[in-house]
Design a protein around this nucleic acid. Structure first.
Lengths: 153, 153
DNA sequence: TATATTTCCATGGCAAGCAATGTATTGCAA
DNA sequence: TTGCAATACATTGCTTGCCATGGAAATATA
């Protein structure tokens, strides 16, 4: 079996190419790929806690803490203490983050268009669906140890 | 548009899940996901230079240098100086690397099986083909600045 | 042959991922 | 009310990715 026939191998490769294509397009705006998912989530809804953001973009809590620190340093977000719970802070976008919103969204759309150049709309839909099913499958795999097997029906 | 409908977003997510699924399965063998592609390439052909390995697994030269250092430290590879060119070294597998080969390949196959659980053979083939086309598209995008545009027909 | 360019690899810097652990706050329970 | 468990976030350590730069060796050129 060749490496190129392994889905995991190819997925890893294409993911690095996506990140790279995004990097060159958003770097001029002072944004890096790892901040992208967080910004998109915050454009949809800001004022959320770090934990909520973790759930939404599905990355580790410690990774999120680091990334938010850089985003705060880069003046993309601001954290306001939650008076209801002093452990938490609510994450707000800065003006600068809103100013680049359109450019970032366009960059993402262009990268997707480049990647799927020559795809029919059906192929795009099929590909997204299959990738989403892989996500579901792998998430189920990763969480099955955490649930006690004896508790399952 | 939702994040979950963006190919780049989903690809990033599924790639992290693949890496994670692989990590838990190969960690007991003292191997980490970032060494995987290199090992597979070396199982096919060893005695290659660092540069050749870069071309084969498509990662940056500096990343390769770091990873090979860790693989040498972990006694997975050995570098023998090339008498024909003293800048180079030929990369050889250790006995330990060969001992875990079957386990690693099986781990990769199991991860792929988990990810594509419920897929028909046709869906597997279609997905692989579409992902490969995205790789080709994105590689073409990344290399077109390096070629002088005036040289194009 | 001396010099300049190119090639190969190493190195340092930063981003971004996970794991494990620490700390403060909250909430529950005795 | 005091003490303990759970929660939220920070921190440290390591891997893996990129970029930019540096040094040594090989190759091309003057």
């Amino acid at each position: 079996m060749k490496r190129q026939d392994s889905m995991g191998y190819q997925i890893n490769h294409v993911a690095r190419l996506f990140a790279q294509a995004l990097r060159v397009r958003v770097a001029p705006h002072g944004v890096v790929p790892g901040q992208f998912a967080q910004l998109l989530a915050l454009y949809e809804q800001e004022g959320v806690t770090q934990n909520q953001l973790c759930d939404q973009v599905k990355i580790d809590q410690s990774t999120m803490a680091h990334t938010l620190q850089r985003m705060e340093r880069d003046e993309l977000i601001q954290r306001v203490p939650d008076p209801a719970d002093r452990r938490r802070a609510l994450i707000m976008l800065t003006d600068r983050a809103r100013e680049v919103q359109d450019d970032l969204v366009n960059a993402a759309l262009r990268v997707n268009a480049v990647a799927m150049r020559g795809f029919t709309p059906e192929q795009v839909a099929v590909c997204l669906e299959l990738v989403t099913r892989m996500i579901d499958n792998l998430e189920a795999d990763g969480s099955e140890e955490e649930i006690s097997p004896r508790e399952e029906t």
